[in-house]
Design a protein around this nucleic acid. Structure first.
Length: 1004
RNA sequence: GCUGAAGUGGUGGAAUUGGUAGACACGUUGGACUUAAAAUCCAAUGGCCAUUAUGGCCGUGCGGGUUCAAGUCCCGCCUUCAGUACCA
């Protein structure tokens, strides 16, 4: 009987679906285990072989845990709101919900065929109103909360109102906006409703504020910091500009310290934790207020102060100037009339520079003097105030005290503008560069700080500043509040309407507020977000429903929020929703969260380090503060799977449309269609061409080309003698290769519309008549023509082969190239495995007692595989299986006592073949919950060891010796051995090292 | 610049607490089977030298060091990848 993997895999996938084999119960007498994958965004392109890598790993772990007797929750769903479906809708008018549903169907089919043990009964989709009801619900919870630093947790906003009513806000220590005014209890009571709401908004955990945001004109929306990579949008690579807009924000900064501390309690990778630490960016120092010095011409300046943040308050006597960000609010007020023109010109120049320009050019020093001075808090000396774009408006206070001797940027600025630099460090030369080593600092020339270390001086100076009322110790975080509005259609609507311009929450019982239909997915003519196109889109407080924009008679109708939520909204609590996904009364029941607690193992990509994984931790901490969850970290352990890279195929061409390094006149000629002959040459010729020595074939082509150009009256210019750089590498689709080889199928590519530009080209073939492409590893992507579709792999080799091969490629966390050719190795392993159990005449398995050798093979396999799974070293267990099968084949093992447990070991990796053989052995139940075989040490006990005998550390030969032999006897036996004598050639060994059970080393 | 990870055959990668470097595969070469191909099986396969069987030398990015013994530990470099970037 043949190993008919297609039939077997279909059979068991149907069986699992029909019997709901992997459905997890919310209560069980088994211990629970929760394995989570990062749910996919269902893109139109479907899955390529890189996508399932993490899912295969988590599936192996889940199946292993079931064999270990755990009640395993292993759910899957879709992060189905997002830009691509909306962009597609804009282009085609197709509703994103339709596109999304179709894509999900494809994803589901592809996932099913790989044989995952997901509990699909718990599937969630973030774009499903039944799901986003609860995303809206959390938003309302956040709106109704504030962060109290006194107890270090979020509290209901009603608690804050109570405090305001009793004592105003003088004693409140809360996370809030910077510009909250001071008021007493009496003031508060006198404020009108709108004013009170405005103040409360400054404290809420989600709030509306005019902030400087990252605006992406091409996408027509704002972006969060983590959605911008190298100054352009993560999706599409469009430019991003700074713009002031009123937006919803999430007060994640309130949780900065807890997000930082929480990292200590979770088992996540160090690199990921480090990324989050950097993103949170804690720095400890002091804030210092400098009095602006009176100026005869500027009365407005009287009494104003400039606050700076510094991590080096100990260097305060080294301040020789102050620098403000050009955007700093005081700049125009303090600038003197003489400096006005210069300052304004500078501000204008910096405003023009995009974020990207600023990043590209950090070396150029620029700035302008404002003409103003501040007073040094201790010496009372005047300090000139400059502006410079090396100071960022968004960090600290947007102003720095510049200490050139202790900070390289200040140093460079001072040198550039000839500002004096004074040295306040003992025994340090600062004639060439600043001295920034805190640990080696001894302060000098600094009045009461002289002789102190960094730590002592910092403490002392903060005390003195407090006495003056001009400073205090302060901790700053780089983490900014997260902008939560997007000017897009395909996202969660806010459950918000406006009265007198103030946001109001729609009562929870009316959720979900569903996305309205619109005719166009673009912004309205008045520049409102796409939801502004909805005709039915206002909130009627009397009927408590969303109604037509045109007012209903006699009823009060208020405008609704037109923005939608960002992509990360739906993914920030989905892991908890899986615990109770169909509950329409609560986000999840108490019983469900009490049972499942938190995610035990989370597997996903590291690209979410500062996005999803930080926001989710924030929401989880909030949910914890509110008492909804039992853990303030949602995932105990997290593993990042590496990316599977594609192996692109390259050819080298010359001719119009192929080369981009022609001399200009040749390009012109080519574009004019005068010359249209194209060539594709082998890589060697290309390399030689680049190096400057053309071989005969290439030389002939070049001669032909020259002749052809000349016949059109065009002189071809060369770069030197050779045709350097004129042949251009370009990518070939893997579909145009012969099988899994590197050989190009010339006929197929000539017919491929993707490559019509070379359909007429002459291919220069090698002596075998082939064109061999050059292969190179890069990210797998449709645009690089190097994607490999898992459907094809499953069709040709089976899902079990795919699963084994993905694991066999290398360590889970590592980036590694895909090469389909290698899959034959694991595929023939499965065939060999099959052959042990099944021969042409039927089942091979007998009740014969296992041999000693077979028991040894089995038990060392149990040991290794168990260790490997627990260490997530899946690649090495595939090797272990291969070794086991090779050994059992050699032993001609037919014993059920060996072959039955072996199937359980393999089942997590290759579940279909395991189920099939398991049932052939007479089992009527699925293998999925069969207990994992127990390792028995006694089968591995050896009586002898093949000792490596080395001389000066170099292994020369091996010697079989009993393991119970004493050290002395081993030494004696080895020294007496004739091979030893041969090695020593009469010399007496100086020393003999014997490590029983390991090695013998003779030093001579 | 800073932070993190990593450099091992033609390729992917193995190698517990330092203890036989290259497991397991791919690929390549030779052979068997076959009219042929596919499939399958057998053998060889780090490099160099030698060969009558035995062998010898060099080898884990580079240069040092510790040790009886180093891919593994220590010091100093180089390279690659990823993240981050004027954070005061």
């Amino acid at each position: 009987m043949k190993y008919d993997f297609n039939q077997i895999e279909k059979k068991w996938q149907d069986y699992w679906a029909k019997n709901q084999t992997f459905k997890a119960e919310n209560n069980s007498n088994k211990p629970k285990y929760y394995v989570l994958d990062m749910f996919p965004y269902p893109s139109g392109a479907g899955l390529h072989v890189g996508h399932p890598l993490g899912y295969i790993a988590s599936d192996i772990y889940s199946r292993y845990k079931r064999h270990q007797g755990f009640n395993v929750l292993h759910p899957q769903g879709y992060d189905s709101f997002g830009l691509p479906a909306e962009q597609y809708a804009i282009q085609t008018g197709q509703h994103p919900a339709i596109t999304t549903a179709e894509n999900i169907k494809t994803y589901r089919r592809q996932l099913d065929q790989i044989g995952f043990s997901f509990d699909w009964s718990r599937e969630v989709r973030t774009s499903d109103p039944k799901y986003y009801k609860w995303t809206q619900w959390i938003f309302i919870q956040l709106f109704n909360s504030w962060y109290n630093y006194k107890i270090d947790k979020a509290e209901d906003i009603s608690e804050l109102i109570k405090i305001f009513e009793v004592e105003g806000n003088a004693n409140v220590n809360a996370a809030c906006d910077d510009d909250v005014e001071m008021f007493s209890a009496e003031d508060w009571k006198k404020f009108d409703g709108v004013k009170q709401q405005k103040i409360l908004l400054q404290f809420r955990l989600t709030y509306l504020a005019e902030t400087e945001v990252n605006w992406c004109p091409a996408l027509g929306t704002v972006l969060a910091n983590d959605e911008i990579v190298n100054g352009v949008s993560e999706r599409g690579g469009h430019p991003v500009v700074r713009k002031k807009m009123t937006q919803w924000s999430m007060r994640i900064s309130a949780y900065a310290e807890r997000l930082l501390q929480g990292l200590e309690t979770i088992d996540w990778t160090d690199s990921l934790k480090e990324s989050q630490r950097n993103w949170i960016g804690k720095s400890v120092g002091a804030s210092v207020k400098f009095n602006v010095m009176p100026n005869v011409t500027l009365s407005a300046v009287e009494g104003s102060q400039i606050e700076v943040f510094t991590t080096r308050p100990d260097t305060i006597f080294g301040v020789s100037f102050m620098t403000l960000a050009p955007e700093h609010e005081l700049v125009l007020q303090i600038t003197t009339p003489e400096q006005k023109a210069e300052v304004e010109a500078y501000i204008e120049a910096t405003a023009k520079r995009s974020e990207r320009d600023r990043m590209a050019d950090v070396k150029t020093i620029s700035g302008a003097f404002t003409g103003a001075y501040v007073e040094h808090p201790f010496t009372k000396e005047p300090i000139p105030v400059w502006i410079g774009d090396y100071v960022l408006a968004g960090y600290g206070t947007g102003a720095v005290m510049s200490v050139p001797c202790g900070d390289q940027r200040d140093y460079d600025f001072a040198k550039h503008f000839n500002i004096p630099i004074q040295n306040i460090f003992a025994g340090v030369d600062i004639s060439e560069e600043a001295f920034a080593d805190k640990e080696k600092t001894i302060i000098a020339n600094s009045d009461f700080l002289n002789g102190l270390s960094y730590k002592e001086a910092t403490k002392k100076v903060i005390q003195e500043l407090e006495k003056l009322g001009q400073g205090q110790g302060k901790t700053n975080y780089r983490l900014r509040d997260a902008v939560f509005s997007r000017q897009r259609y395909w996202g969660e609507p806010f459950p918000v309407y406006y009265v007198d311009g103030m946001p109001q929450m729609i009562d929870i019982k009316y959720l979900p507020i569903e996305l309205p239909e619109v005719e166009k997915y673009l912004p309205t003519e008045t520049g409102e977000p796409p939801l502004g196109n909805a005709t039915k889109w206002a909130w009627c407080t009397e009927t408590n429903t969303v109604v037509d924009n045109d007012k209903i008679d006699n009823k009060t109708v208020f405008p609704l929020e037109l923005n939608t939520m960002p992509g990360w909204a739906g993914s920030s609590q989905y892991f908890n929703r899986y615990m109770d996904p169909h509950n329409d009364q609560e986000i999840f029941s108490k019983e469900a969260i009490d049972y499942w607690q938190q995610v035990d193992l989370y597997i996903g990509g590291s690209e979410h380090a500062t996005g999803h994984l930080l926001y989710s931790r924030f929401w989880q901490k909030f949910m914890f503060d509110k008492g909804y969850v039992n853990h303030d970290e949602f995932a105990k352990k997290l593993i990042n799977q590496g990316m599977i890279l594609g192996t692109s195929a390259f050819a080298y061409g010359f001719g119009p449309g192929l080369a981009y390094e022609y001399p200009d006149d040749v390009v012109k000629a080519a574009k004019a269609g005068i010359v249209n002959k194209k060539f594709v040459i082998p890589k060697e010729s290309y390399d030689k061409g680049i190096e400057g020595e053309l071989d005969n074939v290439t030389q002939k082509i070049v001669d032909d080309i020259i002749a052809e150009y000349k016949s059109h009256g065009i002189n071809v210019k060369y770069v030197g003698e050779e045709f350097s750089g004129t042949f251009t590498p370009f990518r070939i689709s893997l579909n145009n290769l012969k099988g899994t080889s590197d050989i190009l199928d010339v006929e197929s590519i000539r017919k491929d519309p993707l490559f019509s530009f070379i359909s007429e080209a002459e291919f220069i073939l090698d002596e075998n008549g082939d064109y061999v492409t050059h292969r190179d590893v890069e990210k797998m992507s449709k645009s690089k023509y190097n994607v490999v579709n898992p459907d094809q792999i499953c069709e040709d080799y089976g899902a079990d082969s795919l699963r084994l091969y993905e694991m066999f490629l290398g360590p889970l966390e590592q980036y590694k190239p895909w090469n389909t050719a290698g899959i034959t190795g694991v595929h023939s392993f499965l065939k060999k495995l099959w052959k042990i159990y099944v021969s042409e005449n039927g089942l091979n398995v007998t009740d014969a007692a296992p041999t000693k050798d077979s028991l040894k093979t089995l038990h060392k396999t149990i040991k290794k595989v168990q260790e490997d799974i627990e260490n997530f070293s899946f690649n090495t267990s595939v090797s272990t299986f291969m070794i086991a099968v090779n050994e059992l084949t050699a032993q001609k093992c037919t014993s059920k006592g060996i072959l039955e447990p072996l199937l359980i070991l393999i089942s997590p990796y290759a579940p279909h073949i395991a189920e099939e053989l398991w049932s052939k052995l007479g089992n009527s139940e699925s293998i999925s919950t069969a207990p994992f075989p127990k390792f028995d040490e006694s089968h591995l006990v050896e009586s002898s060891k093949n000792y490596p005998i080395s001389f000066n550390g170099k292994m020369r030969f091996t010697l079989e010796l009993p393991l119970d032999m004493s050290k002395e006897d081993i030494e004696k036996t080895v020294l007496e051995n004739e091979k030893t004598q041969e090695q020593l050639q009469g010399r007496t060994p100086k020393k003999v090292i014997v490590v029983p059970g390991k090695i013998v080393n003779i030093v001579g």
